[in-house]
Amino acid sequence: MSQSTQNAVNSSMDKDTEPAVPIKMRGVDVCVHYGDKQALFDVNLEVPEKQVTALIGPSGCGKSTFLRTLNRMNDTIDICRVAGDITLDGQDIYDPKVDVVELRARVGMVFQKPNPFPKSIFENVAYGPRIHGIGQNKIEIEEIVVNSLQKAGLFEEVKDRLDEPGTGLSGGQQQRLCIARAIAVSPEVILMDEPCSALDPIATARVEELIDELRENYTIVIVTHSMQQAARVSQRTAFFHLGILVEEGTTDQIFTHPNDKRTMDYITGRFG
């Protein structure tokens, strides 16, 4: 079965994308255990550069777990063990020589619940560049902050109150602030774990628009529970089920003619 999936993926790739898209991140035979419990089984997934890859699947299937392996956020969970190879630009990110702090500067993350620091809007964005020594002086930092807020589509709304606490913004604004914070350290990849699940439809639309714009400069991996959202923002989609990567391919292909019955059931909403 997995053989046929693989073939299908390859054939679909040949069909409607130019094959020259470079691969930014690649997971090979990724297995993750939480204590004795295995959460991911031999996941093989490629994340193409400057595209949006959506991870979908029922709750508890391991989407977040996989996402967290990409910037080693799983390291912060004591009982979590990761096996297999994960590479960024061909370099193994679990190599002991790799500094996790550097890695996370290159692979940023936005969380499900907006989590701005309880500091000013300015400080929220400026924090990352400061600790990485990006921006030598105040003026440069200010430039980065303004730039990031602009890219996150938040600048116009907050330009007069950069000193006010970031926690005082609305949920949608907070989430865009978090995106600005992630952008500020100039990452290459941005991971988003259900970034819109705490937002209302209008704020969601705003963030989706933003994701679409960001695609130009960043590689994005997004976990979402909304089929529509996956369809709207992503170019590639991967469907997980019970810790297994069931199927992945272009978003068009997954949503129009999936190869696996489970994928079909899930996207048509017939899943238990």
Binding site: N115, Y127, G128, A182
Partner: peptide
Amino acid sequence: PQSIRQAALAVGASKTQSIFH
């Protein structure tokens, strides 16, 4: 909240930095 620690780690703060900052 754990989310504050994660936020700091995700922008590339080391563990010590996330704690002290």
